[in-house]
Amino acid sequence: MSTMLEVSGLGHRYGGPTGHQAINELSFRVEAGELACIVGPSGCGKSTLLRSISGLLTPTSGRVELHGDPVEGVPSDLAVVFQDYSRSLFPWLSVRKNVEFPLRSRGIGRDERRRRSDEVLEWVGLAESARKYPWQLSGGMQQRVSIARALACRPALLLMDEPFASVDAQTRFELEDLLLRVRKQFDSTVLLVTHDIDESIYLADRVFVLSKSPASIVADIPVDLGERDQIVTRESEEFVHLRSEVARLLQVRSAEPKRSAEAERWAEAERAEARESAQP
């Protein structure tokens, strides 16, 4: 198995030398075909990490490589699915046109755009909604459109920033299983950020656990649960064991001294900047 993503000594500080250190000396690898999850406390720097990997943010230290090439700007074979799907879709474009939009900027012809959009909309269960507009769809359906748009680009790496956090529990389960199906169908490599421990264990081949800000990796946990089922998998002894292991790691880190008010302000600024980057 070849390495798809390699992060080496990655760090980012907001506000210059005396500002807030959001992430610090992060190093890890994601192999081709893996689905890896990053889990950590709220405000620990998860979004800063994802934006640094995607090329949306230039880190202040360290290096990111995508299949051996340094990331300098947004790679053409990378796609991102944000948490705030309602702000990342164009309300004046149909579902099909939203899916086709990034393909136009890549110079892909009309017939191929239509073929790809029809294919991915079929896979996410929205073939009959192609002519509708985002505002005519439920939250879960809108997030399916976001996933379809990302998959239509045939990304080497799919980054997902808490993509299911804004939907109800049942829809979340459906979207988790959808991700597993399309990942298998398209042989995708996925890096997903979440604060939900159960979700990370259910989806991942590996779980990276982050510390409080400035984020560093405190554990790299392999997950081998075979074929996933929302009921059977979550009731299994191994799932319960892994969930407890991750929860203990996070609890220990949460018991550390709280950040200063200044650090909290920088963390909030980071979250606000992440929300801005989700806007089309």
Rank of each mutant, 00 (worst) to 15 (best):
G68H: 08
E112Q: 15
L242D: 02
P222H: 10
V207M: 05
R29E: 13
R259S: 12
T194F: 03
E264C: 02
G45E: 11
A278W: 03
S88F: 09
E25Y: 04
L242I: 12
A130C: 07
S47Q: 09
L179Y: 02
K132P: 02
L5H: 07
S236R: 06
P280Q: 07
P134C: 09
D161W: 13
E6S: 11
F101N: 02
V218K: 09
F186S: 00
L103E: 00
I197G: 02
G16H: 00
P75V: 09
Q230W: 10
I201A: 04
I221T: 06
E112W: 09
Y202N: 01
F101C: 01
S211K: 00
G68M: 11
L10K: 07
G40A: 11
I147K: 05
T18K: 09
F186K: 01
E227R: 15
L178G: 02
D84H: 15
E72T: 14
L89E: 08
L49F: 12
S129W: 11
G68N: 09
P70T: 10
V39A: 04
L93C: 03
V99L: 04
D198T: 03
I53W: 08
D220E: 15
A219Q: 13
F173A: 13
R275T: 10
L191C: 04
P214Y: 06
